[in-house]
Amino acid sequence: MLSMKNINKVYQTEKVQTHALRDFDLEVSEGEFIAVTGPSGSGKTTFLNIAGMLESYSSGDYLLDDINVGKLSDNAKADLRNQKIGFIFQGFNLIPDLNLYENVEVPLRYRGIKSAQRKQRIMDCLEQVGLASRAKHLPQQLSGGQQQRVAIARALAGKPRFLLADEPTGNLDSLMARQVMDLLEQINRDGATIIMVTHDPELARRAPRNIQVVDGQLADFTLYQGAPDMHVSSHAAAQV
């Protein structure tokens, strides 16, 4: 489903070259739930941004559903993002002027879905995260955990096959973090592929597959028996 080969990302300033990702290889299959861990500044978010086509990469090959992302125009990337990918952010990133219903509606608006269909889909998603009764509330009227659930509902609205979550529980207390994690597991069981960046080892352990990013390179290992196939980059394998 997702295939990255020799992905490099270099940030260039006048005097300094920073390698955020180096020869990054990763294969992700349909239905996987992957936790990405690693120290701060190791390149986790850069990887997630590249996976979500929010950032370009300097070299390498990235295929999403066999589509070569490197050859896509900006508009095509936006469309692909809208159709295939859902984002969940640490800071929730809800739009403060819009109520919950309107926040969840955003990706559907850009997909051009008709009003009646949109309404049904939004209410289903809010129902799924247990917030249908608060559809008219503004984000700031909710707790952090509830806001993250709205963000998950928004990510699910477009029925994406691929969820990218960047520290989804980073701003939540442990109880709320567990609730959000329960929700993500449920979504994964329903068929979505999830890549989640986290600092929390407990949450990472709940993911069937863990990968670690260190200095922009990948270490890949599996915690559970019966998890999907291991994919170990050559560089990381050498380190292990």
Binding site: L54, D74, N93
Partner: peptide
């Protein structure tokens, strides 16, 4: 700009 970042992430084209 942050709101626009969210909209772009959710599939808004630059033109939109």
């Amino acid at each position: 700009a942050p709101e626009i970042g969210v909209r772009r992430a959710l599939g808004a084209r630059k033109r939109q």
